[in-house]
Amino acid sequence: MKPLQSSRIGQYLERNRAKIEEWKLTLKVLLRSPSAVCGLVLVLLFLFMAVFGPYISPSDPYKIDFAKRLRPPSSGNPFGTDEYGRDLLSRVLHGARVSLIVGIVTLAICVPVGVVLGLIAGYFGGVVDEVIMRVTDIFLAFPALVLAMALSVAMGSGLMTVMIALAVVWWPAYVRITRGQVLSVRENLFIEAAKAMGISDFWIIARHILPNVLSPIIVIATMDMGAVILTAAALSFIGLGAQPPTPEWGRLVADGQPYFPECWWYVFFPGIAIFLTVLGFNLLGDGIRDALDPKIRRRLEFKSAEGESQ
């Protein structure tokens, strides 16, 4: 132990002891709930598929082989094959990457945009708030799916269109959530104290408001990851998203639809992939909400302390 404590890592661990302890407790709360663990496993599985899917897929997802048309699941094709004889397992594995990219790109656009606008509106208030919120209201009044459809039609179908369309309809929710949180956080005395000490507005927003409003945003973003994937799949299902031969889950379900129920596997496996992914993100989001609540963490801290003393 001694050399470790004198080393730089040891010093770092010692200095940030409180922080590390908190992270440990957060993880503990997360792992304590069975549903959160389920969600975590599903999400990790999805991420694994998205990252490594193309390398572990048994065959080329684009390779057409009419000899193997619409085969049921077998040892050679565990998920069966489609009407062109392509291996469905490979196509589902590749589809994970498409879904992940759509989810990440969409959220990477609308979370920062929404959060920044929400911070500005909530912190400064007055006319700035009024203008930002009215514009947000206009976008919020559009039904997400319909606007996405309109944009897809206007700009032509394709994954890029889907991502842009989803980003356009998704950011207002983040403005709302962030602004609401900011309104409550900015009433804290420490914000006034920071102002009284001559700290700049930018610094106050970045270092004192943002970190204090972040937890609900993390939770919503996790759940939205599932929702975005679901909506993207829906758009692809009605033919506005990914174009053939791109293996996209919603598209696969749509392609398999004419052969249902005789060739049930064609619809079933991509469908179950969508279902489990969305479920995973929702369960994980719920788990994170509990884990980020310091009150629940404290309760657990006392419980584990009691357990040790007995």
Partner: peptide, 25 residues
């Protein structure tokens, strides 16, 4: 004015429990 706040005129607040940001040391 911001340069004066904190450096020339500063303030101690009523409730120390809320005058510090809970997220920072």
């Amino acid at each position: 004015m911001r340069k004066i706040r904190g450096s020339k005129i500063s303030m101690v607040f009523q409730d120390p429990n809320t005058a510090l940001d809970p997220l920072y040391t």
